[in-house]
């Protein structure tokens, strides 16, 4: 296994959230007005602090990320010694890719484990009912919460492994602060795409009641197609081409390539466009599914 988990804020985390009356409500929400932006700021801050609460879990996660980072970095070193320029990366870029992967593993939730377990649990138990009578939008609410979580994971689980990796290996990190800014933008977009996928997965619980199976398949697929196992540029022919157009490449492959300076100028715009396009498509799909699903809110447990 190339990845490590250890997030702590799972449990029975409960938070009422809400949706605007969907379906019927699409019409009425215009009249009543959406909730202010500030509620989502509070939700994002809450998402951040919920994960920040579990310090020991975070420390354990950082440790594991670092250990796996070392293992994979040495493996890649051996591989690139045999096949220099594999996938278009030189050795130091390949090792950098490993540490970016470790830093973003939790941030863009490549292996899942964010809000979706909680949301599925709420759907299964019927707690979703309380979430529906409040004046906030279900999808935006969870998006805000997930952005807060991602911000914490970037700082709490990303910075330290990356710094330790940089101490131990010769990493190809850019000196230009603008590249770092461009990287952070790509990460943010990656989080949104990741959220949109997981939101769809979570909503499947409305039909399946237990969405764990779907979730597991999605994580496996996601881990592979995000480029966490190996950079997607390594895969030959059709598989490589397919992997690079699937939404998961927005989670790691694209942010990593931005930091490694593979996307600049117009190429950077195209990369962002790719991420934005998937985000728009998947968020819209989530929205449609939500409107169908909330009409289905049935009496789970009276």
């Amino acid at each position: 296994m190339l990845w490590a988990s250890g997030h702590g804020a799972g449990g029975g985390a409960c938070l009422g959230l809400a949706t605007r009356g969907f379906g019927l409500g699409a019409r009425t929400s215009r009249k009543t007005g959406a909730v202010g932006v500030r509620v989502y700021a509070v939700v994002a801050a809450g998402g951040f602090r919920r994960y920040a609460t579990y310090r020991v879990a975070t420390a354990a996660g950082v440790f594991t990320n670092t250990v796996f980072g070392f293992i994979v970095a040495y493996t890649f070193t051996a591989l690139w010694d045999e096949r220099p320029q594999l996938g278009g990366y030189d050795l130091s870029q390949a090792v950098t890719y490993v540490w970016i992967g470790q830093a973003l593993l939790m941030t863009t939730a490549m292996m899942g484990g964010g809000f979706e377990n909680e949301l599925m649990e709420r759907i299964r138990t019927g707690d979703i009912a309380i979430d529906l009578y409040r004046p906030a939008d279900l999808q935006l609410f969870w998006l805000a919460s997930d952005l807060g979580r991602a911000a914490f994971h970037l700082l709490g689980r990303g910075v330290v492994p990356m710094a330790l990796g940089a101490l131990a290996f010769d990493l190809a990190l850019p000196a230009d602060p603008l590249v770092w800014v461009a990287f952070l933008c790509a990460v943010a977009l990656g989080v949104v795409v990741s959220f949109a996928i997981r939101f769809l997965v979570a909503l499947s619980a409305f039909w399946l009641l237990d969405g764990a199976g779907v979730a597991q398949i999605t994580w496996l697929v996601g881990l592979f197609f995000s480029g966490m196992v190996l950079p997607l540029t390594l895969f030959p022919g059709g598989l490589g081409a397919l992997a690079q157009v699937l939404p998961w490449s927005a989670l790691l492959q694209i942010p990593a390539d931005v930091l490694l300076g593979k996307h600049t100028g117009w190429g950077l715009v195209q990369a962002y466009g790719f991420q934005l396009g998937w985000a728009a498509v998947l968020l819209t799909a989530g929205r449609l599914l939500q409107s169908v699903a909330t009409r289905r809110v049935v009496v789970q447990g009276g």
Binding site: A9, G11, G12, A13, C14, L15, G16, G46, R49, R50, T53, Y54, T125, G126, D127, A129, I130, Y133, R134
Partner: peptide
């Protein structure tokens, strides 16, 4: 306002 005795609207971890 709604209170469901067996469910909570509160933020569990915070």
């Amino acid at each position: 306002g709604v209170v469901f005795g067996q469910r909570t609207t509160l933020w569990w971890d915070l």
